[in-house]
Design a protein around this nucleic acid. Structure first.
Lengths: 202, 202
DNA sequence: AGAAAGTGTAGAACACCGTTCTATAGTTGG
DNA sequence: CCAACTATAGAACGGTGTTCTACACTTTCT
């Protein structure tokens, strides 16, 4: 009764505005430590210090947490990969390196975005929009190259698909620890420059 | 008592030698129809017409079924990708196309092998051996190119990793229905030829 | 032919999962 | 200070992988 002002400031139940970031943070922790299958509603609630019901009140269920992570991931990816170098060709190389940097730095996000399929998960409208925005950034960088005369006789969407597939494939195997390259970063750079040079041959 | 010889030949319980192929077949069906998460011990037993306990008696559990599919998949992949054209460069192109053909034709196998991680699954000794054998085939084809003077200044393992990453990335996005290319097969061929030409530039 | 050994089956049980529902208790705004 | 809101605890439902037990069918040996 007397020393109430010395009590910890945290109330007996989590504040509403703290629940969403706490749960997302817990999800990323669980993915990193136990893999995507470690993300369960009960484990999320336990690690976030909230009640399981909060997952449903604030996210509409487990898949809502997945959606939040994917949208957040595409936000980070856009910040990384939307490079603005003058030379469009060098910009494409820089963007590819930035994509890999994002994937390695935000492995949990990248896993949820591209490497793991959760049960009964179907992306929300926001998630689809964020994904299309990401592909649009890549397509814009490729189009700038086409406008500058690179990649003759090729369509923008095809080159974008080829580059994305290559970068994703390398990163996917790297994150899955299936990589035997002598120098992972150098071999990646060599791969991108080799691919772009090959697609630009005339 | 009298017409016993007219009874259906199938005994009341599944013959031992039929259980393994029946269960593997049921697993591939479930992956194709319902995705990897549709593979449950009870569903496997139901579709294979066996008792759930048979999964444990013959495979040691659900992960044993996964192992069997992966080993079978690497066997098929070896048959596809171990091409033997005279020109080592053209052989690498043919092998890459065969890899994609395998992935598209055996989507369930490919999904289990490279696209989905099952809970608590760790590959058996046989599975690891089959995987290394697969990478060895690719490395051998690359080495033949190096011996013939292709890909100067490059290491065999690096080129193999680059080519595998590219092929896997394209196929992974294609199977995941994330492919915007105008002509999927042609764009894939163009990708491989472009990459190899780029890695071979001097 | 008949008994013994081997093995596939059925079913219950355990702890876990996502999800829904209820009643309670803490927080906040009028 | 009371009413509206909302986070919480807990039970409940049908699923999951896995283990165990009792039983019935096959096969094999004598």
């Amino acid at each position: 009764m007397f020393y109430t002002f010395l009590m910890p400031p945290r109330p007996q139940r989590t504040l509403s505005q703290d629940i969403v970031p706490e749960v997302v943070s817990a999800a990323l922790y669980l993915i990193t430590e136990e893999g995507p299958e470690g993300v369960t509603v009960r484990a999320l609630a336990r690690h976030a210090g909230v009640a399981p019901m909060s997952i449903y009140n604030h996210f509409g269920g487990k898949n809502g947490v997945i959606d939040a992570i994917i949208v957040e991931g595409f936000g980070h990816l856009a910040l990384f990969a939307d490079t603005t170098l003058e030379d469009p060709y060098e910009n494409l190389v820089a963007g590819s390196r930035a994509y890999r940097d994002f994937a390695l730095q935000y492995r949990a996000h990248y896993t949820v975005m591209f490497l793991h399929r959760f049960i009964d998960y179907t992306p929300s409208r926001d998630t689809v929009g964020a994904a299309f925005n990401g592909f649009a950034i890549l397509a814009g960088q490729v189009q700038a190259c086409l406008d500058a005369g690179y990649f003759p006789q090729r369509q923008c969407v095809d080159v974008a698909q080829q580059l994305w597939a290559t970068v994703h494939g390398y990163v996917a195997l790297e994150i899955s620890e299936i990589n035997f390259a002598s120098d992972r970063s150098a071999v990646f750079g060599d791969l991108i420059e080799g691919l772009l040079a090959g697609l630009d041959r005339r």
